[in-house]
Simulated scan of single mutants.
Amino acid sequence: MLSRMFDKPLYLKRGNITREINDLEDAMDFLDEWPDAEKGMTYEMAVKACDEAYVGKIPIDAARETLEIFARKERVLSSVEELLPKIKVGGGGISGPVGPM
């Protein structure tokens, strides 16, 4: 059985929601939900790459890279740093919001 996991996740945002994309299934779900009016050439390339990786025609990392290109073009690519709360490290320790109190 082919592994369909990405070597590292992509974080894609749509509106106020950021999704962690770990594998081809996550990627295809994200692409399936893309609005018809916004589907263009890079969208089609991402779908084709995911489909081909799913059946083993191209490597998983090639599909991930194509999805990342699509996400950058559409300005939906996020990063782990954007998801984490801002933490200040000072002389006496850590301060700032770190989670629910």
Rank of each mutant, 00 (worst) to 15 (best):
G15H: 08
G91H: 13
L31H: 06
L83K: 07
A71W: 01
L31V: 04
F6I: 05
M28I: 11
K73V: 15
D29H: 09
E38T: 11
L31P: 12
E74G: 05
R72H: 01
M28F: 14
I58C: 07
E44S: 14
G92Q: 09
K48F: 05
K88D: 10
A63M: 02
S78Y: 08
D36G: 08
T42N: 12
L2I: 10
G96M: 03
F70H: 03
G92I: 12
E82G: 11
K86Q: 11
L67S: 02
K39R: 15
R72F: 07
S3I: 10
K13P: 02
G90N: 03
D32C: 06
G90I: 00
G90L: 02
E68T: 01
Y43T: 02
I17F: 14
P97F: 09
S3Y: 01
F30S: 06
E33N: 11
K86Y: 09
K88H: 00
E52I: 09
T66F: 07
A46F: 08
I94V: 06
E81N: 05
L31S: 11
C50N: 03
K73Y: 13
D61F: 13
C50R: 03
A63N: 06
M1K: 04
R75F: 00
E52P: 03
A37L: 15
G96P: 05
K8G: 06
I21E: 10
M41W: 15
M28G: 04
I17N: 06
G92W: 12
E68H: 05
N22K: 15
A62W: 09
V76D: 05
K13D: 00
L10D: 10
K57A: 15
R19A: 10
G92H: 12
L2C: 04
P97R: 09
F70S: 05
A49E: 08
E52L: 15
I58E: 12
M45Q: 14
M5R: 02
D61C: 12
A27T: 06
E81H: 06
L12T: 06
A37S: 14
P97Y: 02
R72I: 13
I87W: 00
M45R: 13
A37P: 11
N22S: 13
A71Y: 09
P9G: 10
L31A: 09
Y43S: 05
A63C: 08
Y54R: 13
R72T: 12
K73P: 04
K8A: 11
L2E: 13
L77K: 02
A27I: 06
R75D: 11
M41R: 15
C50Q: 00
D23E: 11
L2Y: 14
E74Y: 02
K48S: 15
K86I: 05
D32L: 14
G93P: 12
R19M: 05
K8S: 15
M41T: 12
R19T: 09
Y43H: 11
M41Q: 14
I21F: 14
K39S: 04
L2A: 02
V76S: 10
G91N: 13
P97W: 03
M1W: 14
R14Q: 11
F70E: 04
K88C: 00
L10T: 00
R75P: 05
E25M: 15
K86S: 06
I21T: 04
R64A: 12
P59F: 10
Y43P: 08
E38H: 15
V80K: 09
M1C: 13
D26G: 09
C50H: 07
